[in-house]
Computed example of a mutant assay.
Amino acid sequence: MQRLSARSFSALATIGMLFLTGCGTQSGAPRGEAASDSGDKTIRAQKVMQLTQVHGETGMTLLEGPVFAEDGGLFVVDVTAPEGKPKVMRVDVERKTSRAVHTDGTGAYTSAQFSPYDGRLYLSDFAHGEVVSLAPGGGDVRTFFSGEVDGARMNPDDIAFDREGNLYISDSRGLSEGKAHGRVVRIGREGGGATVLAGDLAAPNGISFDADYRGLWFSELTENRISYLRLDGQGGVTSRHTAIRVDGGLAQTDSIAVDADGNLYQGLHGRAAMAVYGRHGERLATVELPSRAGGLESATNVAITPGGTKAYMTVSGPAGGYLYSFDALAEGTRQSNGG
């Protein structure tokens, strides 16, 4: 693969500036749970460990895509890691250690997911419009998909798998121009048959199946809304509607995870917090960092331990990239693990 071009690097820098705009707002409420001004409860997250520092080459760090492997290892990507620095890391959350799994000179990986079909780790490369996969422990890099979909290259952001291993991707095409050219794209598990399920979207970001795999939740970064696509079980769409409007203020909607009870965990860019909604749209909770946690501006994504309720949230800002943990409202499943 070629080295990162000046044009691609400039695009990545633009992405990074957008991702880290806004002010991190942390509550000064006591640790634990309390009522917030909007009536939902506050869940206080606790620091687990620091994973990265701001990179001198890119001027930032941005952690994303936490996902648990079958053996319990937590994989995390750093979107803006330069060549030679870990772009994919494996974290032992009990020992609070991490090690590099993958790096290269080109990728800007914004999500990670293990496929139920072949067990490989799939990464979306935002800057180059590709989806690549790695062996479960790293190595054996393969390009799963590259090229145009309906005449236009993707800017793939997040990934969701159905039970058969087909991919559903939030394509943030148009983000850098501020145009609603984004899409939700489905790609068959063998890498073919790419189809657009929804178009004219405002920088779609988070994407996750609901608890029963009947439909997809997806968020639009520049509209602060979450929509729902009802699926027909054959890869087609039967209906689409706006489900939740997120009152984010300066913050914007990022990745989405769904727990076993169908609750949505909506990451926020521009605020080190996460909004939690019920499947009928009610605001249930807000996950906040301790008031002493400074220099952190975005809580991008979360992985809830499969079969457990311990959640691990990726948080980034000028202070570096961190993992924070909190108790989720229900157990973790595939839909609350990566993406």
Rank of each mutant, 00 (worst) to 15 (best):
P66L: 04
A69F: 06
A69P: 15
E70V: 10
D71A: 05
L74N: 01
F75Q: 09
F75V: 04
D78R: 06
T80F: 13
E83L: 02
E83T: 11
G84S: 06
K87N: 12
V88I: 00
M89H: 08
M89S: 13
D92H: 07
V93E: 06
R95S: 14
K96C: 09
T97S: 09
R99C: 13
A100F: 11
V101L: 04
T106E: 15
T106F: 12
A112F: 08
Q113Y: 10
F114A: 00
Y117P: 15
D118L: 00
L121C: 08
Y122V: 00
L123Y: 01
L123K: 09
L123A: 05
D125F: 11
D125Y: 08
D125Q: 04
D125G: 13
A127F: 05
V131I: 15
D140Q: 05
D140N: 03
V141C: 03
T143W: 03
T143C: 12
T143N: 01
F145H: 14
S146R: 15
E148M: 12
V149P: 02
V149K: 09
D150L: 06
D150F: 07
D150N: 14
N155S: 12
N155W: 12
P156M: 06
P156K: 09
D158G: 00
D158N: 01
D162A: 04
D162H: 10
D162W: 04
D162G: 02
R163E: 02
E164C: 08
G165D: 07
Y168T: 12
I169Q: 13
S170H: 08
D171M: 00
D171V: 11
S172H: 11
R173K: 14
R173G: 12
R173C: 10
G174I: 07
L175C: 03
S176Y: 11
G178E: 05
R183I: 13
V185E: 02
I187N: 10
R189M: 01
G191K: 07
G191H: 04
G192F: 09
A198G: 03
A198Y: 10
D200T: 06
P204K: 05
P204A: 05
N205A: 07
G206M: 03
I207R: 10
S208I: 08
F209I: 02
D210Q: 03
Y213P: 06
